[in-house]
């Protein structure tokens, strides 16, 4: 069907108002609660513009003044990875969640929730520091000697580049972790009298023992297949087979279905599984 503007959206089922239900939480450890907002319908909105309008409105559905919902975003183009949340029960980026589409699937309301695998900071904002900490643990970088002028990097086949590009589009959004049954939430409360630095160190130790998640497994694949990155592949493989490594993955394949960047996560995981086996055998004999 085509409407007067030439778009293929359905014109007939447009409601006068959009009902948005948000699972809110005032701070870490606080009890979550639901709040409903009503907005006049407009075409071509996405969930980010809905949240912007809620902020500008400053009232809930009953007309009560409420603080604006806290959420994270930056690029609004599905490239920065900031705006991940659970929308109508599905983890995804808010900036590409089009309201007209959501209403087609579920006309009565739009439901927004924070991700459940990361500690809530406030409302839809969660603490994803763990994702970046994992990148340290797996040495997700190319260990160049220096930043001087030493000519170009090694030549690479188109095939290699295409694979590397697919993997290096990972924007650390966390969708794959939210969907993974093996990736569990870790919330480390601060002990009384513990200094910020001590707390961070303890938190890091705990997270480093937990499952690294599909994204990190694919990053090991990426850096181990880079010609220079391969030079310290063994160190990454040690981490791969260590605590929180590949053996935790139950191969449920949920991750690959939700990745907004369509990263072939399970292919990488399979490749890493084989690399892990070989590495273990080698270690066995080397030791």
């Amino acid at each position: 069907m085509t409407d007067s503007n030439g778009s293929q959206r359905q014109g007939s089922h447009r409601p006068r108002e959009i009902r948005v239900r948000v699972r809110r939480q005032d701070g870490p450890g606080q009890t979550p609660y639901w709040e409903t907002f009503l907005l006049p319908y407009e075409p071509d909105l996405n969930v980010i513009s809905v949240l912007q309008k809620i902020a500008a409105l400053g009232k809930d559905a009953e007309g009560k003044r409420v603080p604006p919902v806290a959420w994270e975003c930056n690029c609004l183009e599905e490239i920065c990875g900031a705006c991940t949340m659970v929308i109508n029960g599905r983890v995804r980026q808010a900036c590409t969640a089009l309201v007209d589409r959501l209403l087609e699937q579920q006309p009565d309301e739009i439901r927004l929730e924070p991700m459940s695998k990361f500690p809530v900071i406030r409302d839809l904002v969660v603490d994803r520091a763990r994702i970046f900490a994992t990148l340290k643990k797996i040495q997700a970088w190319v260990p160049v000697d220096n930043y001087l002028n030493l000519g170009p990097g090694p030549r690479q086949s188109q095939e290699n580049q295409e694979l590397a590009y697919l993997l290096s589009k990972c924007m650390s959004c966390g969708c794959c972790m939210e969907a993974c049954p093996q990736y569990l939430k870790i919330e480390v409360p601060r002990l009384p009298g513990e200094s910020e630095d001590d707390y961070r160190r303890r938190e890091m130790e705990i997270t480093n023992r937990a499952f690294m998640g599909a994204a990190a497994l694919a990053q090991i694949d990426l850096f181990n297949s880079n010609p220079i990155g391969a030079m310290n592949a063994r160190e990454r493989l040690d981490v791969l087979i260590g605590e929180g490594g590949i053996q935790v993955c139950g191969n449920a394949q949920n991750c690959v279905k939700v990745c907004p960047k369509e990263i072939p996560l399970t292919t990488s995981i399979a490749r890493m599984g084989r690399a892990a086996t070989i590495h273990m055998v080698r270690r066995w004999f080397d030791l």
Binding site: V142, V144, Y147, L150, P152, G153, A164, N226, I228, G229
Partner: peptide, 12 residues
């Protein structure tokens, strides 16, 4: 060249 060494996936 430097960005290439750092692993940027430039098209080939």
């Amino acid at each position: 060249d430097l960005m290439d060494r750092l692993g940027v996936t430039f098209n080939r």
